[in-house]
């Protein structure tokens, strides 16, 4: 058993947003509280432009800032697989976690007045008592058309993060970046 994390191949992501919509569909998110979003970066010059698509969600950090900020202990990190979850019964909607997350993962649900975020599709990926992987994949990983987004245990948290991505030093997000055939930028 090990820390679950995402593996993102930045060369293969085509920026289609299928992952974001699959997450909405799987998690029945309320409008305005999408857990997964795709950032577009522009670079290069007019003559030789560059584009990068970076899919962002909760990265279930090893040192989650959200957990440390929560005044009511609503946020927990699972011991076996490291999934970070916000307990809807305990959350008071103070938004501290949203303030401190380097990646914008916690979202405020206007209906419930509480914070929500990516759960790593814990309801699919782990069994009832969260002791074992089921073999099922998160909805975002299932749908990635370019085969850019994957997940696994102990993914290694390696690879250059795209420039502008909040430093790993703060919270140690569980994500490995692979740049494929392109130069990191």
């Amino acid at each position: 058993m090990g820390q679950l994390g995402f593996k993102i191949n930045l060369a293969k992501c085509v920026g289609c947003r299928a992952c974001a919509v699959a997450c909405n569909a799987e998690m029945n998110t309320v409008k305005g509280t999408r857990y997964r979003t795709v950032i577009e970066k522009q670079g290069g010059t007019e003559e030789e432009p560059k584009r990068l698509f970076v899919t962002m969600s909760c990265f279930h950090c090893e040192e989650p800032a959200c957990l440390k900020s929560c005044p009511v202990d609503a946020i927990t990190k699972d011991e076996s697989f490291g999934i970070v979850l916000i307990d809807q019964d305990k959350c008071i909607g103070c938004k501290y976690c949203a303030k401190v997350c380097p990646y914008g993962a916690p979202r405020f649900n206007e209906n419930t007045k509480k914070m929500e975020k990516c759960t790593f599709c814990v309801h699919k990926v782990l069994n009832e008592d969260r002791s074992v992987l089921t073999g099922l994949k998160p909805a975002c990983v299932n749908t990635c058309i370019g085969k850019a987004l994957d997940f696994g245990e102990n993914v290694g948290n390696t690879g250059d993060a795209p420039s502008g991505f909040a430093s790993r030093d703060y919270t140690n997000p569980s994500v490995t970046f692979d740049w494929g055939w392109i130069e990191p930028w």
């Binding site: 800032a65 440390k68 929560c70 501290y96 401190v100 380097p102 914008g104 502008g164």
Partner: peptide
């Protein structure tokens, strides 16, 4: 690799420890 078991004691001043904001990462879209 061991997953650190995080104690339930949190730092009540997250702003001191984590001087990061969302704007660290330029989000165009």
């Amino acid at each position: 690799m061991n997953i650190k078991t995080l104690s339930k004691q949190k730092d009540r001043n997250p702003e001191n420890k984590f001087k990061v904001t969302r704007r660290t990462f330029i989000k165009i879209g």
